[in-house]
Design a protein around this nucleic acid. Structure first.
Lengths: 221, 221, 221, 221
DNA sequence: GATGAATGAGGGTTCATTCAT
DNA sequence: AATGAATGAACCCTCATTCAT
């Protein structure tokens, strides 16, 4: 009750850290890094605070200086992951030039990000904890897939406007594109950790995905 | 040599269940039901053996009469789920008649199964435990998606042979179809438990999925 | 309270078992044999009733048909061991002829019995349980060492009477003899299980023990 | 790599205890004291960690801060007992003056140590656990009886050199002396806890033991 | 009489958390 | 701010014992 776990070292926007000599976000980051590693590897319930502390290289007590409890630490980690997702999920800002090339480009970047073991681990971690922390799954879904779909939809909108695509619902089309890209790869990668795909396999999948997408939504010759 | 948790009352043959090879006792089923419920709700690490026992309506000690330890109980549960997956994932035995109608039919049945909360919980449970029990993720992947893709691919093969489809790689096409069906629904359902979709939404997604699929692989007029 | 664990199959003196077709002492013996093995190997607390049952080749429930509980089973075992001790500890009935030869003879037989691994295990088992079951240690002490000393004392009495020995207290002298026999062997054997002694070592110890004994108590030339 | 139960507050040097090489903390000692009491009273298997904790006046969890597990705690206790044994078992440094007086002196001190209830309990505890922890029995045997015999043998060597004794094998003679001292007392004390002997009894036993010893090994008049 | 299924108390151990330093 | 010692609740599992068959 008394304890409130006030974060040491003011944080918030980095801008006002200028005048502080050691804003000690360092330790907080360190802890989050340890937590990320531990939670990814063992899940929320499977990872112990001691593991987190050891991985982070701090004492167990220190964890509670920065985070009120295990759940709060997990939440902070999820919020970080959310930022990462929001930034990296389906970047497709500059869509111009030949549409097929551009789609292939987007797909390749998307899969490269998506298939990284850490990203997959994070997804497993969140999905595994979703029943206990429903908010976190939603958070990540909205920052990741949902945001990505939105971004791609806007791009598709422009292509529709320019006549490159014919598409009644660009949001759904965007969703189709993303799922076609991951088709035959993502499910396996999620369920079978350690699965590796060759670039050739990925190229084939990307190429097919784009072909299907364009067959459905492309300008009819 | 040591303790092996031999199933009590394990009978070699049970005259009236030809197709079933494992001699499940009533109590064993009861325990597995409790375990299913507990593990789905809290994950492998999050569920305690006492919760399982209470949910199953047996004493804690009884669990260990039927299963060597927690992991063995989980494994038994996964093996059951695998059977269920194998049976129900993408049933599409009788593909004849108009292809669009048939695809819609398959898609509807697939989504109906897939979107059931218990199925989603199971998937989350397995994905959450995959880092600790990699074999189980693989097991379910192969019994579920992989087997489903194979089944659908065979059906598509026939449609290709009959000229209804043009398709260089029916396995990949099957994968495409499945992912198109789940597009915009499944990810959200996985990440946001409790999400409900109206039949209208589902119909729209199915219709779009089939359209995209046929645009890509259907007989060119 | 209700349960009284009446031994099945009347027992008592074997004489009245003649008329019974299957006096079922068989199973009781079987259980005791299992218990002996299990308790020797792991001690009273270290051995579980399941181990006993498995070793005995009966079901756990059967143990409770013949013995009220674990302690009662242990007690029955101790009573058996007591009989064995009483019979075999320091047999020296026929002491005649050359005294040195006779003492060597007794000593050899004593050590042969004493150094057998099972006898040592039994002693460890009882000593280990003595703090919890003080009566049992006393029981075995009286049936073993104490009885042996008494037996030997009587023999020494005769030798004193015949002038072969000079001995103010034959009980103490008997005790001395026994301890001299075991000297340098028995303590080690008790503390270091698996210790093996060669016959040569034993011969030397016996010879020395007898020499010391006779130097102290023998007829002064 | 894994948990190692590093002693908290373990200090490399503690300025005011030169002779002590292990950095026992207060709490560690406290726990060991509790363990000693509990294990002595109930044996290794018979004593629970909760009993140990309660006896030591610490929480159960604290035990595991100082010792990796029950066996490690027991081992630490045995190592302590070993030190005690090594120090106190048959002290006989200054053997000079009349040999009979000296032997009586040594014998009295030996028995006084040996017959103390705690010492007897410790021996029972170790003997009871020897089948499970063979190393510990050996450890104590070597630090106690074996070392004592060695010490006494050296003293006897000097007496042989000075012509006070005639003795072909001083090690064996030392063993004889020790066993004669305990004769009629030690076995009973081991098997019957709570046995008390009067000083008169002890005096008589000691006197006899020395007499027998000198009759065998003393200078022949 | 003999069994094995079933139990709940208790065993050893880990854990999230607190607190004095 | 950072620690590590300390805790007690809870966890997984075992056990002596009971009871229906």
């Amino acid at each position: 009750m008394t304890k409130t776990a006030i974060q040491p070292g003011a944080r918030g926007t980095d801008s006002d850290n200028d005048t502080q000599d050691q804003p000690d976000t360092t330790k907080r980051r360190q802890i989050l890094a340890g937590a990320r590693s531990a939670f990814r590897a063992h899940g929320y319930d499977g990872a112990s605070m001691e593991m987190v502390a050891r991985t982070a290289g701090v004492s167990k007590g220190t964890l509670y200086v920065y985070f009120e409890n295990k759940a709060a630490l997990f939440r902070a980690l999820i919020l970080e992951e959310r930022l990462d997702q929001a930034e990296t999920f389906l970047q497709c800002d500059d869509m111009s030039g030949d549409i097929r090339d551009q789609l292939v480009n987007v797909a390749q970047r998307f899969l490269a990000k998506m298939m990284r073991p850490e990203r997959l681990s994070t997804l497993r971690m969140v999905i595994g904890a979703t029943e206990q922390f429903p908010e976190f799954g939603k958070l990540l879904y909205e920052a990741g897939p949902m945001k990505g779909i939105g971004r791609l939809a806007k791009v598709l909108d422009r292509r529709v406007a320019s006549g490159d695509l014919t598409c009644p619902d660009t949001e759904l089309a965007a969703s189709h594109f993303i799922d076609l890209c991951g088709s035959s790869l993502l499910k396996r990668a999620m369920f079978v950790p350690g699965t590796e795909f060759t670039q050739a396999e990925i190229d084939r999948v990307v190429s097919s995905a784009v072909s299907v997408f364009l067959a459905a939504y492309g300008k009819k010759a």
